[in-house]
Amino acid sequence: MLPWFSDGQFPLFLAPMAGVTDVTFRTICKEMGADVMVTEFVSAEGIMQADHRTRKYTEFTDGQRPVGVQLFGADGVRMGEAAKKIIDWKRPDFIDINFGCPVNKVVSKNGGSSLLKDCPLLAATARGIVAAVGDQVPVTAKIRAGWDLTTINAEEVCGILESEGIASIAVHGRTRSQGYSGEADWNVIDLAARSVGIPVVGNGDITSGEILAKRKEETAVSGVMIGRAAMQNPWIFKEAKHFLQTGETLPPLPVEERWPLIFRHCRLATESDRYGDERHTMMAMRSRLMAYCKGFPGSKALRRQLSQVESVAQLEDLAAEHLVMEHHDEDLTTSTGTAST
């Protein structure tokens, strides 16, 4: 068994998300309590061509362990060679295969969730990677419930992957055709988990410690994977663990306590060489800032300003202005309420 599932542990995974779960964000989520990390997916062909930009996606720090590097493709032999290169560069704790990505540019190359429609090819791909890696590191996989609602086959796919030597499987409870719409089907995840003897990690709509505890109690999953909820609220790992341990829901973190982590994320990003200089880094961070500030008081106007931010100093000024406005609105509400009593 993989060590992060041993001794009754119920690990919380940070889901791999392209353009989101880079080294910087993984550092933050690890500090917040995420147990296992998976890198953004990386093209096996890009690795084989020794593309420098592709190799950057495989980077991680030792402080993020256990961490896996996720590969996509549909040629098990080539992907196996790519996996060996990654292991030689910086031995990850596992190699993960992406059989779940719904994005057209991946699916059109016969990668990601497209293999859910071709189980023999999916099996051959997994077999090739497991054979190439041998006993160097475990190989895991991430899948979806199926291609569409008429072809839900997570149980079948999990059985195939187990027979090919895959050590654990993460199942997203939506089909490829759903994308990220609708609700994740945890009945499908539960049935998949009960159908195999290896750990299955549930993924989809984990937005609070209460929901996480419910999935842990009511399904056979061995862990959960949190994705989009962590984009807005990386504190979710800390909040979820607190609920699991105490049954209590922590109060929402005040906005003024959220800003310092947002600043830190931006500073760490500018210190890395991922996006270039500060201006280009902050431009790349705009979508992340939008996610962080979703639900903030006056977020509509704030998001409009964030769409033009070009430096950390400018962001700090916007935050200071936002906090002043927020407290001013609170004071007005309080005074109005007092006057009417």
Rank of each mutant, 00 (worst) to 15 (best):
P102R: 07
L323Q: 10
E256C: 05
M283C: 04
K214S: 10
L122C: 09
E162R: 13
E217P: 00
L261M: 15
G80C: 08
G112S: 09
P16Q: 07
S272Y: 05
D62Q: 10
L332N: 12
A184Q: 06
V130E: 06
M325S: 13
S43W: 02
F25E: 11
T61A: 12
G337D: 13
M48D: 04
A301H: 05
Q314D: 11
L306W: 05
V139D: 02
K84W: 01
M225F: 07
D185F: 01
P252E: 15
C101V: 01
V312M: 04
Y292W: 14
L323W: 08
E164D: 09
V157R: 02
V324Q: 15
S311L: 14
E162S: 11
G276A: 11
F72T: 01
E164I: 00
K109P: 02
F296M: 06
Q305T: 12
G63Q: 14
G159S: 08
S340D: 06
A230S: 15
G46K: 03
R279W: 01
T336G: 03
S114E: 13
G128H: 10
Y180L: 05
M231W: 11
L115C: 09
S195L: 07
T270Q: 01
R53T: 13
I97D: 00
T334A: 12
F41V: 08
G209M: 08
D317Y: 02
G247I: 13
M282E: 04
R53Q: 11
P92H: 04
G209L: 03
S43V: 02
D62H: 07
V312C: 09
N98R: 07
V38H: 00
L116C: 10
A132W: 06
W235M: 11
A339I: 06
L315M: 08
V137G: 03
L253F: 03
R55G: 04
R303H: 15
E239D: 15
E210F: 10
V42D: 02
S177T: 14
P254M: 12
A15G: 05
D7W: 00
M325Q: 15
G111C: 06
T150Y: 06
L332I: 11
C293S: 13
P3T: 08
F60K: 05
